[in-house]
Design a protein around this nucleic acid. Structure first.
Length: 794
DNA sequence: GTTCTAGAAC
DNA sequence: GTTCTAGAAC
């Protein structure tokens, strides 16, 4: 379960049954050369810790003498069973040496940590030399060779070995800090997951050895380092300076092996971090979801080369994480290709030390920020750039689908975390409080969740496949390495869209065109827009005069409204009224003699679909303002009758969806819900931005009213009366929006309800029809009319 | 959101 | 031939 805490802090560990008072034991695997201070570390922690610790030391396990690895394992296992935490005090420099100790962690009952005492080789050697001299076993020079040899084989631990936490210590103060952290850990405490103190370049050890052994000059190349990766152990040694003594051969071996090490470095592995889909807010059953995750992961890891998947959850006590971890272990899924990770998905690198190129978002169908949980967190961490980039790719998402969005380089997620793509995924919903609830229909739900993971992993696979060259994942270096990635993302656009959101060619082209146009002239666009103070008509007709970077062409109108709502001061000439909550303006293409818009000024309130309980007051304000303006016109022309209301969300259809195959349903939730069954349905895109209340006179006497859609958007259930919307919001906390099919229904007079074959005939009729308005409108107070005694007055 | 226009409807 | 609509284009 996702909890609401967004930072990785010390969380309460889950309390397994029967262990009410016990926290999670820790297996702390120390990694370090002889003389690096492993035993001292353990002693220092144990001296002041309130948590029961046992030190498993291979050198002394056999009644004070050196023992075997199985002895250590056995001893560690029995200590863990008693609920004690253990130190594995042996060098553990190689992955293989650590592997069996890592397994002590089991599926989830024990946290496996590593503290790496990666101190200068010189220091380790000098300590070892002193010690071996004391013991009389080794000559000083031989001790140095042993340490050096061990360090050659050193493989720094990585999270995917099964560690939940790794702390790298490069100097004494790092070590002291790590001691303090573990010493302060009470029996019930847990520590945040991730890699800490990792160093970018690892040339010091070898340089230290060189200095120590040969006192050679350090080549300049080596000092600057060549690889930015976390394990680039590759000092360049020129021929002139290459050591030639026997002891120094070891160093050149290290150098020779560098190429291979770098190639296999985890930095070159593309990583997808994904949250569990649908199990948080959408309340999908954890057991079922974990089965699906493991099944899908198992299916995909086989296909992935040089890539891996990481399931991330925020909470240390994550049920879904434990379930998946256990089931993945049962299925023998390669832990290098898939593992679980506790942390904030928006801070995996900066706080968790885990580099992920791609993160998945448990999105909502509108692909908008908000809603809490992972979605809110990712949109917030990525900044507005993600919203913009997302809009360029898709406007909405169907359950079971995913859409790949390349993250612009100005996004903090890109620059700070090294995330190049976000894949939005929409899973099935089992929460009756959320749209498209499947009412516990797990056969359908499971099918959709499987589709969701397939779409997600396919999306990731397309990124892996299409990536010609890995971007430099060192966030500090990202900016310079971005151009190739951008080029790549364009060429593979269609490929990505196939994973769930298909746009037709026209739209694709227009998007591409637009972004091209905008790149070169962003400054001009803004200047033009801001400068043309009272030319909204021009602005609205020419998409490039709006904000090209954030909209596609037909979305410009919506963008213009949004801009007015956000910056009314720039549009004073066009606005009738400006207040904190709303602005009022004449509709540019008025569909009646009087047609005003009352625009909400709240950010994130794009349409009726975004309206929730907390907006009740705002909607009431909008109504009051709209009514006030209607009443203002009545004395001038008492024959006017006004109606106040909202359009339901207009959805632009881009795919090969055939309306006749779609049941005529009320409520957008049902549309989306039913549409999962229609695989052929294309992309459906809301066409407006910024909630606005129409205040429109009922004469509909306007040359701008030209087609069926115009008429029906004001004269069918597609038009939601303000009073009813408010009532519904008050009673149900949300507003249902009506199906778009109303827009193509037959043309009927809004007064006498007579049908008419076309717009001209209808308009001719309504200009003469004086039938009273339908009683329901009158009764519900949907109309603003002059007082009876004034009616008919000029 | 509107404009443009091919082709259906009359 | 003219009117009107629907859908592409913007």
């Amino acid at each position: 379960m996702m909890d609401s805490k967004m930072d990785m802090e010390i969380d309460d560990a889950p309390k397994p049954e029967g262990e009410q008072d016990m926290g999670k034991p820790i297996v702390l695997i120390l990694v370090g050369a002889p003389g690096s201070g492993k035993s001292t570390f353990c002693d220092n922690v144990m001296r002041s810790s309130s948590r029961p610790w046992v030190r498993i030391c291979q050198d002394t396990i056999n009644n004070g003498k050196a023992g075997t690895k199985p002895q250590c394992l056995k001893s560690a296992a029995s200590a863990l069973k008693e609920g004690k935490s253990v130190f594995i005090d042996r060098c553990n420099l190689e992955r293989e040496q650590r592997a069996e100790f890592v397994k002590l962690g089991g599926p989830a009952q024990v946290d496996v940590h590593s503290v790496v005492l990666d101190l200068p080789a010189q220091l380790c050697i000098s300590r070892s030399v002193k010690r071996t001299r004391h013991e009389g076993n080794l000559q000083g020079g031989r001790a140095a060779a042993v340490v050096n040899k061990m360090l050659q084989k050193k493989e720094l631990p990585k999270l995917n070995e099964g560690f939940s936490r790794i702390v790298f210590c490069q100097n004494e103060s790092d070590v002291q800090a790590a001691v303090a952290t573990y010493a302060a850990l009470g029996p019930l405490d847990t520590l945040p997951s991730g890699c800490f103190g990792e160093k970018k370049q690892d040339t010091k050890v070898q340089l230290g050895i060189m200095k120590f052994l040969k006192k050679t000059e350090v080549p300049k190349d080596a000092a600057s380092g060549v690889n930015g990766g976390q394990e680039s152990v590759c000092p360049q040694i020129s021929k002139e300076n290459r050591p030639c003594s026997k002891e120094a051969e070891d160093v050149s071996v290290v150098s020779a092996s560098c190429g291979k090490e770098v190639k296999e470095s985890e930095d070159n592995i593309l990583t997808l971090a994904f949250p569990s889909i649908s199990t948080a807010d959408f309340q999908f059953n954890n057991e079922k979801a974990s089965d699906i995750i493991v099944e899908k992961v198992d299916e995909f890891v086989g296909k992935l080369e040089n890539a891996r998947l990481v399931l991330v959850d925020l909470s240390n006590g994550s049920k879904i994480l434990s379930l998946v971890k256990a089931k993945a272990a049962q299925k023998n899924i390669d832990p290098k290709k898939f593992f679980t990770f506790v942390g904030d998905i928006t801070r995996l690198y900066s706080r968790g030390g885990l580099r992920c190129n791609v993160i998945a978002n448990a999105a909502n169908w509108r692909l908008k920020p908000g809603g809490g949980g992972v979605n809110a967190s990712i949109f917030s961490a990525a900044g507005p750039a993600l919203e913009v980039a997302t809009k360029e790719r898709a406007k909405s998402l169907l359950p079971g689908r995913a859409v790949v969005v390349p993250l612009p380089m100005d996004s903090p997620l890109y620059s700070r975390e090294g995330v190049s793509h976000v894949i939005h995924v929409l899973g099935p919903n089992m929460n009756p409080q959320r749209p498209n609830c499947l009412n516990n229909d797990y056969s359908k739900g499971s099918e959709i969740l499987q589709q969701a993971y397939t779409s997600l992993f396919d999306g990731f696979a397309s990124i892996v496949r299409d990536q010609p060259k890995l971007p430099d994942k060192n966030p500090e270096k990202l900016k310079s390495g971005r151009s190739d990635l951008r080029d790549w993302s364009h060429t593979s656009l269609s490929n990505h869209l196939q994973n769930g959101e298909r746009k037709d060619k026209r739209d694709d082209d227009s998007v591409t065109e637009r972004s091209k146009k905008c790149k070169g002239s962003q400054g001009e666009i803004d200047a033009d827009f801001n400068g043309s103070s009272s030319k909204r008509g021009k602005v609205s007709r020419d998409p490039n005069n709006i904000d090209g970077s954030t909209s596609n062409s037909w979305g410009s109108w919506a963008q213009a409204l949004y801009k007015m709502a956000m910056h009314p001061e720039r549009h004073k000439d066009e606005l009738l009224e400006i207040s904190d909550d709303v602005v009022v303006l004449n509709d540019l293409y008025a569909k009646a003699q009087k047609h005003l818009l009352v625009l909400a000024r709240h950010e994130g309130l794009d349409s009726l679909a975004d309206v929730h309980e907390e907006h009740l007051e705002l909607l009431m304000t909008m109504h009051t303002v709209g009514k006030k303006w209607a009443e203002k016109f009545l004395p001038e022309d008492s024959s006017l009758v006004f109606r106040l209301g909202y359009h339901s969300v207009i959805i632009k259809e881009l795919g090969n969806f055939n309306k006749s195959q779609m049941p005529n349903l009320d409520g957008l939730g049902q549309i989306a819900g039913s549409s999962c069954g229609y695989g052929h349905i294309g992309n459906r895109v809301p066409s407006m931005r910024q909630l606005h209340l129409h205040v429109i006179s009922q004469d509909f006497n306007s040359s701008h009213l030209k087609n069926k859609k115009h008429w029906n958007s004001f004269n069918t259930a597609f038009f939601r009366d303000s009073v009813e919307v408010i009532e519904e919001l008050r009673n149900h906390g949300k507003v249902t929006v009506k199906e778009e099919s109303y827009l193509s229904t037959e043309l009927r007079c809004h007064r006498c309800k007579s049908a008419h074959p076309n717009i001209p005939r209808l308009k001719s009729h309504i200009s003469k029809c004086r039938a009273p308005f339908p009683p329901t409108l009158l009764e519900k107070g949907c109309l603003v009319i002059a007082p009876p005694d004034k009616q008919g007055d000029p």
